[in-house]
Design a protein around this nucleic acid. Structure first.
Length: 600
RNA sequence: GGCCCGGUGGUGUAGUUGGUCUAACAUACCACACUGUCAAUGUGGAGAUCGGGGGUUCGAAUCCCCUCCGGGUCGCCA
C-alpha cells in the first residue's frame, strides 16, 4: 500500500509517529519559507507542512504542487502550535511534517473548484465532469450515506429472514402503465426484451415458489419524462411477503425506517408514529396524496361558500363541477405586492388561471370591526364586504392573516394549492428541516376514471387486491372500490408504494375483464402469473420503497435525486459525460435487424 | 407536446429603455514576494466569437424570428 493512514485519522494519538499518506492536493498555501497543503482523501482532510528545516527537497517540490495533484507523503504527526488548531476538521489538532513528497500524478486545472462552497456550478458542467463533482465532500458524503443505508437494509432484512433474490433485467414487454425500454434480440430477429419497470410479476412468482420473504435492491426502468425526483432508472427496495396483511408490511417498514434513521444518520428525528391517513382525507386537507406533515396549514374547502358568491371567477368553475379551496396563513399579510404576484405566478406555471388573495390589516383590533379599508385584496371590487367577512369567518382568519383562494377543477385546485402550501411553508420556514414526518396513506381507490381514454384505469397496478367487502362494487360503482394499498410518504415525498395482491386467478381475471382485456391479451401479458396463481399461490403482499428518494431526504444538501446518484441523467435523458444516448454503427444495427426510419 | 426561468472569460454573476461595452466584479489560473496559514495575504499579468443561426439598424450581449442546451412545471410516470 502506498498509504497506511487516512487523512481524517491523523489525530493526537498518533503524535510522533511517522506515517504515509496519499491523496489529492486540496489547497496550497505558500508562505514563502513555509508551505501548507490540505491533503484530501476519501476520509477527509489533513494539513501537511513543508519546511526547509524538515526536508529541503520536499519543501522545494511543494512549491510546484497545484490543486488536485495526486501525491504521497511521508511525515511525522505533530500537534499544531497552540492557537493554530482548526476545529472544523477532525484532524485539526494535528498536522503532518513532510519529510518525503512524491507526485503520483499531476492534474489539469479543474473546470470548477472541488469545494462545497462553490456548489452553484451549472449542473450540466457538474455532470460533464461528474468524476470531479463526486470528489466534493458533500457529494462524496451522499454516496457514502447511500452505501450505509443499503448495507443497513440488507442486514436488517436478512436478520428478519428475508432472502435477497435477483430477478432478470431482460424480461418481457407488457405494454401497460409506463413505457418500456426495449432491447433487441440478435438471436431472434425482430423480437425484443424489455427492461423491468419493476420486478412486480417476478416477485409475486417468487411467493408462489414458497420463499415467503423476498427482497432485492432492484433497478427499475421507465421510459418516461424525468423530474427532480424521477430518473429513467431508479433503485427500489423490492419487498414481497407471503401470509401477511397490510399491517404486517407497514409495521416492517416502520421498523426498518426507524432503525435506519436511528443508526445511519445523526441529524434526523422522526416525528409522529407513522399514522395511517386515508386517501380521501389527505386529498381534502392537503390536496395531494403525498402531504408534507411537518406543518399544519391545511387547505380549507370553500366550495359551499363560494358557490353562492357574486363573483364569477368563483362560481363559474364550481358550476362546471369544480371546487374552491383556500389557504389561510396567519401573519402573511406582511407580503409585498411583489411577493403576492410571485405566488400568483407560481400557480400559473402549474396550470392555475389565477389566485385570489385577501389580506387583513394587522392594525385591525378585532374582525368584528372589519371594514373594506382593512382589506387588501385582488377581488375587493367583485366580492361584497359580507362575502369577504364570511370567508374570513369560515377560514378563521385573524388580523394580519392572508387568505389565498383558488377555484377551478378539483385537479387543478389540488395541484396548485398543495404545491402553494409547500412553497409558503418553505419560504416562511414553517418546519424544521431535521424532522421526518412519515405517514401511510391508505384507502386508495382501486380504479380511476380516465377522461381521455373514456374508461377505468387501475390507480396503482392491477394486481392490487380490493378490500374484500368491496368486490360487490365492481359491477355497480367501481369508482367506490377501495384498495388494500398503502403508500409511505414523508415530508411531501412518496417514498414507497405497496399492496396486498390478488392471489386468486379467478379474481384477477375479474379485474382484467373489467378493464377490458380480452382472453388473448390476458394470456399474452399476464398468462404466466395467471397460471402460477392456479398452483397454490399463497396470500401475499409487499411494498417497494424508493432508495434514491429516501437518501435525498436523509441528506442536507441534495436538491434532487440526481444529487444522490453517482451518474444521473439530465431532464432530457442524456448523460453529458458519456454523451448518452448515442448513435450506433450501421453494422451493429444490421446485426440486430434494426432499420432506422427517417428522423425529423 | 404545452407553459415558466436560465445560457456573458475556467467557474459564479453584473450589464438587457440599442451607442463611452475597447464588456464589469468575484473567484480560479500564471508570475513574483512572503515562516503559522487554513476562503492565506500583497503586487502584477493573461484569459470572453456574450449558447448557435438568421434578421432589423449607421451601430446588437441588449430588439425580432428560428434553433440547441439546462432546470422547474403541466401532460406523462399501471
Amino acid at each position: 500500500m502506498i498509504k497506511d493512514t487516512n487523512c481524517s485519522d491523523v489525530i493526537l494519538d498518533k503524535e510522533g509517529q511517522t506515517i504515509n499518506l496519499a491523496g489529492w492536493v486540496h489547497k496550497r498555501r505558500d508562505h514563502g519559507g513555509l508551505v501548507f497543503i490540505d491533503l484530501r482523501d476519501n476520509s477527509g482532510i489533513v494539513q501537511v507542512v513543508f519546511d526547509q528545516g524538515i526536508s529541503e527537497k520536499s519543501y522545494l517540490d511543494a512549491q510546484t504542487l497545484r490543486p488536485e495533484w495526486v501525491v504521497s507523503i511521508k511525515g511525522k504527526v505533530m500537534p499544531r502550535p497552540a492557537g493554530t488548531e482548526n476545529t472544523r476538521i477532525p484532524s485539526g489538532m494535528c498536522e503532518v511534517h513532510c519529510s518525503e513528497l512524491e507526485v503520483l500524478n499531476e492534474s489539469k486545472t479543474p473546470p470548477f473548484e472541488i469545494s462545497d462552497d462553490s456548489d452553484n456550478t451549472d449542473e450540466q458542467i457538474r455532470l460533464r465532469y461528474r468524476y470531479l463533482d463526486l470528489r466534493k465532500s458533500a457529494m462524496h458524503q451522499n454516496i457514502i450515506l447511500r452505501h450505509n443505508v443499503v448495507k443497513h437494509i440488507r442486514e436488517f432484512l436478512s436478520q428478519k429472514g428475508f432472502m435477497e433474490i435477483e430477478t432478470p433485467i431482460l424480461i418481457k414487454s407488457t405494454p401497460e402503465g409506463a413505457r418500456d425500454f426495449v432491447v433487441p434480440s440478435r438471436m431472434n430477429p425482430g423480437t425484443f426484451y424489455a427492461l423491468p419497470q419493476s420486478p412486480q410479476q417476478l416477485k409475486q412468482l417468487l411467493m408462489v415458489s414458497g420463499f415467503e420473504k423476498y427482497f432485492q435492491i432492484a433497478r427499475c426502468f421507465r421510459d418516461e419524462d424525468l423530474r427532480g425526483d424521477r430518473q429513467l432508472e431508479h433503485t427500489q427496495l423490492d419487498i414481497e411477503m407471503s401470509f401477511v396483511n397490510e399491517d404486517d408490511v407497514m409495521t416492517l417498514i416502520k421498523d426498518l425506517y426507524t432503525e435506519i434513521i436511528e443508526n445511519v444518520v445523526d441529524n434526523r428525528t422522526i416525528v409522529g408514529s407513522f399514522p395511517k391517513l386515508s386517501y380521501d382525507d389527505v386529498m381534502d386537507k392537503y390536496g395531494t396524496d403525498k402531504p408534507d406533515l411537518r406543518f399544519g396549514l391545511e387547505l380549507i374547502n370553500l366550495t359551499e361558500i363560494a358557490k353562492t358568491s357574486s363573483a364569477h371567477v368563483l362560481t363559474n368553475p364550481i358550476n362546471e363541477g369544480g371546487i374552491a379551496k383556500a389557504l389561510m396563513i396567519p401573519g402573511l399579510n406582511k407580503y409585498s405586492r411583489r411577493q403576492l404576484d410571485d405566488l400568483v405566478a407560481f400557480v400559473k406555471t402549474r396550470g392555475g388561471k389565477g389566485l385570489m388573495y385577501i389580506g387583513i390589516s394587522e392594525e385591525l383590533s378585532t374582525i368584528d370591526n372589519l371594514t373594506i379599508e382593512d382589506i387588501r385584496s385582488s377581488v375587493s371590487k367583485i366580492l361584497t364586504i359580507d362575502e369577504i367577512k364570511s370567508i374570513i369567518d369560515f377560514t378563521n382568519a385573524s388580523p394580519g392573516s392572508l387568505i389565498l383562494i383558488m377555484a377551478d377543477s378539483s385537479k387543478v385546485v389540488n395541484t396548485c394549492m398543495s404545491q402553494l402550501r409547500n412553497e409558503i411553508a418553505e419560504r416562511e420556514e414553517l418546519f424544521d428541516k431535521s424532522e421526518m414526518a412519515f405517514a401511510f396513506i391508505t384507502n386508495f381507490p382501486v380504479f380511476e376514471w380516465d377522461d381521455d381514454m373514456n374508461n377505468w384505469q387501475p390507480s396503482h397496478h392491477l394486481f392490487t387486491s380490493p378490500l374484500e367487502k368491496d368486490w360487490d362494487l365492481l359491477d355497480t360503482s367501481p369508482g367506490d372500490m377501495r384498495a388494500r394499498h398503502y403508500d409511505l410518504v414523508c415530508n411531501g415525498m412518496e417514498l414507497a408504494s405497496g399492496s396486498i395482491r390478488i392471489h386468486s386467478r379467478e379474481k384477477l381475471e375479474k379485474i382484467l375483464d373489467f378493464l377490458g382485456y380480452d382472453d388473448e391479451s390476458k394470456i399474452e401479458r399476464f398468462g404466466q402469473l395467471l397460471e402460477a396463481l392456479e398452483y397454490g399461490a399463497p396470500p401475499h403482499g409487499g411494498i417497494a420503497p424508493g432508495i434514491d428518494r429516501l437518501i435525498t431526504l436523509l441528506t442536507d444538501n441534495a436538491e434532487s435525486i440526481r444529487d444522490v446518484i453517482a451518474f444521473p441523467k439530465t431532464q432530457s435523458g442524456s448523460d453529458p459525460l458519456f454523451g448518452t444516448p448515442s448513435l450506433i454503427p450501421k453494422e451493429q444495427l444490421e446485426e440486430l435487424h434494426i432499420m432506422i426510419s427517417e428522423i425529423d
